[in-house]
Simulated scan of single mutants.
Amino acid sequence: MEIIHGTEATFKTEVLDSDKPVLVDFWATWCGPCKMIAPILEKVAASTDEIKVVKIDVDENPNIAEKYNVMSIPTLILFKGGKEEAKQVGFVNEPALRKFAGLE
């Protein structure tokens, strides 16, 4: 499944109302660790239809980042049934990301 670039306008539809678990990546263009995790997220997203992966640029969507207490990036939040299930702050490798997302 392709990565979705979410916004404040699409967050409810893409994340909260999703019938699948959603892995949200809070990131910014200037963030080095965000650039490091991006290809891992792309690989995971392309390898499964079990979850959706949504990227939220914190500079363009500060209200969502604030609502979910994103203080450092990258921050990954796993949503299930519209609720925050788990949060991971900082870079993780692919096996750790797959386990966090419930794919292992």
Rank of each mutant, 00 (worst) to 15 (best):
I56A: 03
M71R: 15
D25H: 03
E85D: 13
T7P: 08
D17W: 00
T29W: 00
S47Y: 04
L76Q: 13
E85L: 13
A9D: 14
A65H: 03
V92D: 02
A101K: 04
A86H: 11
E8Q: 14
V92H: 02
G32W: 02
T75L: 07
E14A: 13
G32P: 09
V54T: 02
G32R: 11
L16W: 10
V58W: 05
K67I: 09
E84Y: 08
V15M: 11
A96L: 07
A46S: 15
F11A: 06
P74W: 06
T48S: 13
P21Y: 05
A86L: 12
L16N: 09
F26N: 02
L76V: 08
L103M: 10
F26R: 03
D57R: 00
L41E: 01
K12T: 14
N61V: 13
T48M: 07
L76G: 01
L16R: 07
E84L: 12
E50R: 14
P62Y: 10
M1R: 06
E42M: 01
T13W: 00
T48L: 11
V89Q: 09
V70C: 11
A45C: 09
D49H: 12
A38E: 11
P95R: 07
P95D: 09
I56T: 04
I73G: 04
Y68C: 08
C31G: 09
V58L: 10
K55L: 06
K12F: 03
V92W: 01
G81L: 08
I64N: 03
K87M: 13
P95A: 09
D57E: 02
P74G: 10
F91W: 09
Q88C: 10
A45P: 02
E94L: 04
A96T: 13
F79C: 06
N63T: 15
T29C: 00
F100M: 08
W27Y: 14
C31W: 06
S47V: 03
P21C: 08
R98S: 13
F11N: 06
F91P: 02
I77W: 03
L76I: 07
G82E: 10
V70K: 04
V24Q: 01
V22P: 01
A96C: 01
Q88A: 10
K52E: 09
W30A: 12
A28S: 11
S72N: 15
L16S: 08
D57Q: 03
M1D: 05
T75K: 06
N61K: 06
K20F: 07
K80A: 11
V70H: 05
F79A: 05
V15A: 08
P74Q: 10
A96W: 00
L23P: 02
N93I: 05
A28T: 06
D49M: 01
I77S: 04
W30M: 11
V15C: 10
G81I: 04
T48C: 08
K35Q: 15
W27H: 11
K87C: 03
E42V: 02
P33E: 11
K43A: 14
A101E: 07
R98K: 15
K87G: 03
A38K: 03
G82V: 11
I64T: 10
I56H: 01
V44M: 02
K83E: 15
R98C: 13
L76F: 12
P21R: 07
A96Q: 14
L23D: 04
M71K: 13
V92P: 01
V54E: 00
I3H: 01
F11R: 04
T48W: 05
E104Y: 04
V15L: 10
F26P: 00
N63E: 15
E104R: 04
H5L: 14
